[in-house]
Amino acid sequence: MERTVKAKLASLFLAPVYIVLVSESDGRRLSLRVTPVMLQIGLVLAVGALIACVMALNVIGTHYDGAIASASKFDAWETTIQEQRTELDTLRRESYLDIESVLTWAESLQEGLASIESLGTRMFEETGIEADDFDIQRSRIGGIGGPVLQGADGDDAPPVAPGELESTVASLEGMRATLEVRERQLSVLRALVLGASSERIEDKLSGKPVKSGWISSSYGRRNDPITHAPAFHNGMDFGARHGSAIIATGVGVVTFAGRDRSYGNYVEISHGDGLKTLYAHAGNIHVVPGDVVEKGQVIGEVGDTGRSTGPHVHYEVIHDGKRLNPWRFVHSS
C-alpha cells in the first residue's frame, strides 16, 4: 500500500497529469495538461510563497513589539522631563527667594552706608574738619547695583548658580558686619572729636574700672606693698575678684594692649585731648591696639599679673603725660 502511494506520487513528477474540469450544468469538459516541470515549478513557487508569508508575518510582529516598547520609552521620557521641569521650577523659585534676601541685605547695607555718610558729614560740619582728612567718603564699602530681577514665573529669569549666590550672601554678610563696626567707630570718634572741642576732661571719664570691688589703695604717698618702703602711688588700686570684668571708663581708642614687667597685662586707652587711662595687672585682655571702645565696655579680666600682691586693677589717669589722681573722675560717677 505504502509503495503504491509512493509510486503514484513519483509518477506525478515523471509523467504529465491531466486535470479534468466538468461543468455540472451542461456536462462540458475542460482538460488541463500539467507537465512534471510545471508541477515542480508550481511546488517551488508555493513553498516560496509560504516562506515569504512566514517571514513577512515575523517582520510585522517584530515591528509591532518595537512600536509598543518605543511608546513606553516615550512615556518614561515624558515623565522624566516633567519631573525635571518641576524640579527646575522649584529651584528657580528658591533662587528667586534667595535673590530677594540678597536684595534685602543690599538695602540694609545701603541704609547703613547712608547713615555713615550722614554721620560723617555732620561730624565734619560740626567740627570744621576738612572731609579730605578722612577716608570715609573714599573708603565707602563696595558698590551695590545691578539689573532688576524678573519674577520666578518670568521666562527671562536669570539663571543663578547656587554656589555663586551663597558666596555673594557671605560676602554681603561680611560687608554688613564691617559696616556696623565702622558705624560704631565713627560714632565714638565723633564723640571724641566733639569732646576735644567742648568737653572738659572730667566729663570724658567717669566711674570705676571694675563693676564690683573696693578701693584697695589710693593715689599718693604710701608704703610700697612689696618693698614696704615709702613710695608714690601714681594711680588707684581696685581690689576685685579674680576674673571679674575690667571696664573702660570712657570712650576712646586702645593705644596699647600687652605685657609689662611691672604692670603685667595692661591696656591703655586714649580718650583724645591728651587724656589717657591705663588698666594694669589684668588676667586676660579682650582688646587690641586700634580698637574703638565705648564707656562701660569690657576690655579685660581682673588678675594679678606683673608686680602685684593679689587680684586687683591698677587704674591710672594720664593727662599730657602727667599722672592725675583718678579719684576726681571716679568720684564724679
Binding site: K208, K211, S212, G213, W214, I215, S216, S217, S218, R222, N223, P225, H228, G239, R241, T309, G310, P311, H312
Partner: peptide
Amino acid sequence: FCQIVESLGLTQEAADCAAAFSIWFE
C-alpha cells in the same frame, strides 16, 4: 584699715574687710 590689711599681703582678708565695712561696691 583694710588697705593696711592688704599691705600685709593678706589680699583675701582685705577683701573680706572691705565687705565687712561696706566699702565693697557692686
